[in-house]
Design a protein around this nucleic acid. Structure first.
Lengths: 342, 342
DNA sequence: GAATTGTGAGAAAGCGTTTTCTCGGAGCGT
DNA sequence: ACGCTCCGAGAAAACGCTTTCTCACAATTC
């Protein structure tokens, strides 16, 4: 049995004793059950405040079968995208009296499954961002994680809400934007190879090239970080491209920084675009043209889906497939007319 | 009693039944208690894996009196500083099998106390970042939140570990750095008035001015965000100062961006410094001179202190006052010789 | 005035674990 | 062979709460 090392925290029993009633009555009073004589209720309340009684949430959770907590699994907490999702989720959940437990898988996909399971068991639901997890594993895991909301992933079973960002469309719009500025030689600074969202971008770009046979589009290896962008300066310059589509804003910023060091002017000599529209994108020099993803809102939506799942267990109005967020082209000053254009 | 709406999750009882033993034995096996006949242990393990049994952490927590979870209260999850603390904390705690529950007070200091209490009750300990909370309230709250680790705050009672950043020293070094570059007219773009860390910076600057009677230092109202920095361009230009000490990197970046729009060259016409050395500081244009605070490490340290608190309840080796982190001057290219200097 | 309904509060049964207590039985010494 | 110790496993209590069940007592009705 649990040994409480220190002086026992004061519990419902202490209040009951002090008020001269039973535990049950104290519980009823604390939960606003009105089948209690006002006189007694007052006495209980007085005792509770006097003892500064605070119900133990663990006992409560055990009895109620719920924890008022949801978990979120993210691959990397240092990534602004996941920070924003977490923030949106946390704020929205807090509005409804729920807390958020975080689990950072550190990009280790084997950890994702374990962390997800552990987090789920401690919580009433799970928001899963697992971009690297294999489809098969996700599919297998999904049933045991319900209720769950997926970010940028889907399962075949329809009752797992899914929030997707249309990266393909976004990157396409950015490419079109560059073409509209007269660029004919483009390069895509790709993200991590096994990233699901990178795959979506590639698919979008495939459509783009199909629609624009005259435009050259090179694929450059990159990554998802500042450093990756910074280190790819040479490759970018060697490519001869004048319009660069970076995997995301971080990469674009790294690239911007590297180009500045090399004396390459943006956008006069070269145009650079990001993706995500993280808060910093507005304040780079030059300010960054990007595709804005309403990430915080996405986190918020994740909570709303989760809330629906938790509340009306039978209702399944979200069966209309994944909710898709369309990125919005955000033209700033890192993109401009191609060199040699009037 | 708790009604389980859906089909009951499989519990210890199911395993016991299948293995033909008692709950107790299953528990013993699951916890690696070796006073169990290996034959039976194997049988139990087989039953457990076959049923895919996963112990319910809530029941476990109730029995054990611990949750293997710690809480962190932050004033604003969109602030990179707190994101970094959270990350360091979360990663370090995960190493030891602990999880992190987050509570964002949204800068509402009245919320801080309530959130802190709620989080604490659900967890084994609390890391508190409450820069706006009144000293008296903190002092009053502290006993009920133990074990607790404070960030950038202290209590009079000595057994609450405290992690402090020496903002005063950091801002002083930045100011000295600017003076060393020949600047004689400086301005400090202050942070939120009630912020504890802003107070520390002001104290540091007071020492600075005392030591440098010949140097002019103006105090400008600012804030703690990009926007604040961006909006203070006019005030900065009007001040006539050539060396600007921004409250933090965010403000510095906003200012940098605003100055660029106005055609003011940095560092040729004006030097700008930040504070914190957030990851982005390396990639601004120009790269930002700042005082580096090892924030992630601070989060990590917070966990280590917490771990000590949780493990050896009596031991109190940390009684040597708060741990102070000294910011390290990080000279980059946003600071340079004062205009008109050889 | 006796039977019936209603009301409010205590007793007790969970929720799912861990751990103490207890006890049957095997092993050993005399 | 008897008694003692030791060991392994089941019974049961405990963790702190919620909620059903139950029952005493008061209030109504015929």
């Amino acid at each position: 049995m649990g040994r409480r090392a220190t002086t026992r925290r004061i519990g419902i029993a202490d209040v009951a004793l002090k008020a001269g009633v039973s535990h049950a009555t104290v519980s009823r009073v604390m939960n606003g059950n009105f089948t209690v004589d006002p006189t007694i209720a007052e006495r209980v309340r007085a005792a509770a405040t006097e003892l500064n009684y605070q119900p133990n949430p663990v006992g409560r959770s055990l009895a109620l079968g719920k924890t008022d907590t949801i978990g979120i699994v993210v691959p990397d907490l240092s990534n602004p995208t996941f920070q924003a999702i977490l923030r949106g989720l946390s704020m929205a959940a807090a509005q409804d009296g729920y807390r958020v437990l975080i689990a950072d898988s550190s990009e280790v996909s084997s950890e994702e499954a374990i962390l997800a399971g552990e987090a789920r068991r401690r919580c009433d639901g799970l928001v899963l961002c697992a971009p690297r997890m294999a489809d098969a594993e996700l599919e297998e895991l999904a049933p045991s994680l319900q209720p769950m909301v997926l970010i940028n992933r889907t399962t075949v079973d329809t009752h797992t809400p899914s929030l997707m960002v249309d990266y393909g469309q976004g990157i396409r719009e950015l490419a079109e934007h560059l073409v509209g500025l007269g660029h004919t030689r483009l390069a895509f600074l790709a993200g991590p190879a096994r990233s699901a969202s990178n795959g979506l971008r590639l698919a979008g770009l495939a459509k783009f090239t199909a629609a624009h046979p005259g435009i050259e589009l090179q694929m450059l290896d990159g990554g998802s970080t500042f450093e990756a962008g910074h280190q790819s300066v040479d490759a970018v310059l060697a490519s001869g491209a004048t319009g660069i589509l970076a995997f995301n804003d971080l990469v674009a910023m790294g690239l911007l920084s590297g180009l500045h060091e090399r004396g390459v002017r943006v956008p006069e000599d070269m145009s650079v675009t990001g993706f995500d529209d993280i808060p910093f994108a507005r304040y780079t020099t030059p300010t960054l043209t990007t595709a804005a993803v309403p990430i915080t809102e996405l986190g918020q939506q994740a909570w709303h889906r989760m809330r629906d799942l938790i509340r009306n267990i039978p209702s399944d109005e979200a069966a209309g497939g994944p909710t898709v967020f369309e990125p919005k082209l955000e033209v700033r000053s890192s993109s401009g007319a191609a060199p040699g254009t009037a």
